[in-house]
Amino acid sequence: MEERTRAYLRGRFRDHYRRKEWLPESSGDAGGRGSEETPPPDPEAREWGYIPWTSGATTMVRHQSLLELGELGDFLQRERPRHVYFSAGRYEDPGADEMEAKGWRDSDLVFDIDADHLEGVDPQRDAYGEMLAAGKAEVQNLLDLLENDFGFSDLTVVFSGGRGYHVHVRDEGVRGLDRDERREIVDYIRGEGIERDAIQRVEMGGTATRRVLKKDGGWGRRVHRELLSLADELLAMDDDDALERLKEFDGIGDGRARTILGAVSEDYEKLESGNVERGGQGIRELTKVMTEKVVADQSAAIDEPVTTDLRRLIRLPGSLHGGTGLEVTRIPRDELADFDPLSDPVPETFEGHEVTVEVTDPGPVELRGESFRLSAGDVSLPEYVAVFLMARGRAEKGKE
């Protein structure tokens, strides 16, 4: 990135921060899209860090307390940083230079989903918007697990401004968890080790034993719910179609399909109770296949090191992402489905006028519902597109 490009972005970032109003810390984490923002809860107990607009190697300035930075809005306008972070952890002395001297108190439970790391996503092939859409689907799975399996309620959902999404859990009951305890949560959410035998128990019935799904909660409940849904689907079909539907599953041939259909038709109540013994190997194989499918469809591909790191720094909502020029954006829970990462995080500061840039990495770009196919060389573009290209290293500021 050339110096004139850095200077331009640094100046426009400052203009953005001048338009922001940071509410009192007592407002907690209630900020959202627009001109008003709040810091995270207990900001004075957190470590702060930022990356300035310097040439050469990226330099992180960290081990800062809010006392050292000053009032947050003033700091952002003064330093106009490229990236801004705060710690998930709370400390007795967050500005201490050594981690051991900070005096760790507790940490939020933070989850990170990077769209370009998801299975089936290829950053070289897939458009930026397509990757972010895949990431949002993972976030919806994550929230479903956090709310319905863990019962968490104090959740903050954030678009990172770059490759994906963050979810902060601040329930008091989780803030004191150590790394190993957080790793157990990660494994559950990622569906690690969730197999058929892990979600069922063996019960004695007279002289016989039977396998019963643990349907009262967790992955057992999820698999049981999908098995019943499939059973209802089969009962609504004629037999030939039901058999073909069952044979779509790996390991289910014609013989097992007939056995399963008979068990579903004759002993639906037993399946409803969680009993997967009736139907013999056919039902057991279906339960195995369904478990694999449910875990694949309903788990969330979270980044394990982010959640288990008690000292992690995470992006500040309301700040700008120096790699895109988009705003790190809180997303109200009931607005996630409609959130558009290519439109909603575009700062108003960069709307309404055009600037000239020299495109160095031609190709398509899509923002705010508009598509641009750019060739190399000078071009006049809406500023939000120009900032996006410059921040991503695809263009330089045009010479005046």
Rank of each mutant, 00 (worst) to 15 (best):
R330Y: 01
L374H: 03
L374I: 04
G377L: 06
S375G: 13
S265V: 07
F249V: 01
Q281Y: 02
D361E: 11
I314N: 04
L374D: 04
T324H: 04
V289K: 15
D267K: 14
E370D: 13
R368P: 00
A242G: 09
A263W: 10
D361Q: 11
G323W: 04
L374C: 03
V346D: 12
D338R: 14
G280I: 11
G282L: 06
G251D: 10
F350Y: 13
D239W: 01
V365F: 06
V295D: 11
R258M: 14
T308Q: 08
R333H: 10
P345Q: 07
F372E: 01
E327Y: 01
T349C: 03
L246Y: 09
L246H: 12
K293Y: 10
I283K: 13
A263C: 09
L374V: 02
E327M: 14
E370K: 12
L313I: 05
P345F: 01
V355N: 06
V294Q: 05
G352M: 07
A242P: 09
V289S: 12
D309C: 04
V276R: 08
P332S: 05
T259S: 12
L316E: 03
E277K: 09
K293P: 09
E248W: 03
R311H: 14
F372M: 01
V359E: 10
L286C: 11
G369Q: 08
R373A: 11
R373P: 00
V355T: 12
L243P: 08
D239I: 03
Q281S: 14
V295A: 09
T291A: 01
L367F: 02
E366L: 06
E304R: 11
R333N: 04
D250E: 14
S273E: 15
F350C: 04
T356Q: 10
T308E: 14
L261T: 02
R284G: 09
R245H: 11
G322F: 07
Q298D: 08
A300P: 09
A300D: 10
H321W: 01
Q281T: 09
I260F: 07
E351I: 09
G325V: 06
D303L: 06
L246M: 12
Y268G: 07
